[in-house]
């Protein structure tokens, strides 16, 4: 049994974390997702998704759950790692002032868990103003610095020109994080959580969303998997996500998982078929650059 993936959803108050998490639960598609929130405040979970609730746990349609962790995240994570039935994925909705990088370090200490990615929401309408705020500006900037993926919320409420200026500003300050937009919390779970079948080339095109494009690629010859993963994470390639198997120069099949700038290479005992699925924004993903890496596009 592999380590349980943990996605951290961060962002200042009002950035849209709750909306995002609810949308994510709506498209859970059979995955048992455990959501950890700071506290059961006003509507952490949409009422129609709730099956039952008590002081410590909200049961959600489809086998998902939501727990509050108050001031003791590490204890709550430990509890979730041992929870039965075992969740498929843990999502931490961080408090508005928490540093997601510090949360990721906490997750790293629990052997049963692995950090899958850090998604930081930024409110398109006021992120630039907030980043200059006397009190919380530096907090917001530090959160963005920890991001693997920056999700621009309320992107539909600003016009295209302003959105481009905003994206340029983000790219200038946080060049390594991938930026995608999130309208009404709509981000495919493949992008948000990396939940997609990555090991099989035939899953190319599985991904039906008009904003994103997925490519299935293969590599016939052994490569240094870690180096390849680093290359895939380069912003110029335009990849938001990648997952799948390549043959490492050590001879072993390596599982590469990419979440924005974050890469992870592991050597599972039961590898899947060779092949990588890459997801990027439509028009940003660069098939030629992938080919230059020696990756054949299926």
């Amino acid at each position: 049994m592999g380590a349980l993936p943990v996605t951290i959803v961060s962002g200042y108050l009002g950035a849209g974390k709750t909306t995002l998490v609810n949308q994510m639960l709506r498209q859970a598609d059979g995955a048992k997702i455990a959501v950890l929130v700071n506290e059961f405040g006003e509507l952490p979970i949409d009422e129609d998704l709730i099956e039952a609730r008590d002081d410590e746990l909200i049961s959600i349609a489809g086998g998902c759950i939501c727990c509050s962790f108050g001031s003791d995240l590490a204890a709550a994570l430990k509890q979730m790692a041992e929870y039965q039935p075992r969740p498929d994925h843990i999502v931490i909705e961080a408090s508005g002032v928490a540093m997601p990088g510090a949360i990721a370090q906490t997750v790293d200490l629990i052997p049963e868990l692995r950090v899958e990615g850090i998604c930081v929401l930024a409110d398109s309408l006021n992120i630039r103003k907030m980043s200059g705020d006397e009190y919380i500006g530096d907090t917001i900037e530090r959160q963005l610095s920890d991001a693997d993926l920056i999700l621009l919320s309320k992107a539909d409420l600003v016009d295209q020109a302003d959105l481009e200026v905003l994206q340029d500003w983000l790219a200038e300050h946080w060049p390594c994080a991938r930026v995608v937009t999130a309208v009404q919390g709509q981000v495919p779970n493949a992008v948000l959580l990396g939940r997609f079948a990555g090991g099989e080339t035939r899953s190319a095109g599985q991904f039906a969303d008009d904003k994103y494009q997925s490519l299935a690629v293969r590599l016939e010859t052994p490569v240094d998997a870690r180096k390849l993963a680093q290359r895939l994470a380069e912003p110029s390639l335009g990849l938001v996500r990648a997952k799948g198997f390549v043959r490492d120069i050590s001879g072993r099949p390596a599982l590469i998982q990419l979440a924005g700038q974050r890469t992870e290479v592991t050597f599972p005992e039961k590898p899947g078929a060779a092949g990588l699925v890459c997801i990027g924004l439509k028009g940003r993903i660069d098939p030629r650059a992938l080919q230059e890496l020696g990756l054949g596009i299926s």
Partner: peptide, 23 residues
């Protein structure tokens, strides 16, 4: 601790909020 300008004497970055201003 959260300091106003000029911050920490040794140049350490400003501290952490444990509550959001709105909260």
């Amino acid at each position: 601790a959260r300091l106003r300008w000029p911050g920490y004497h040794n140049g350490a970055p400003n501290g952490l909020w444990y509550v959001a201003p709105e909260q």
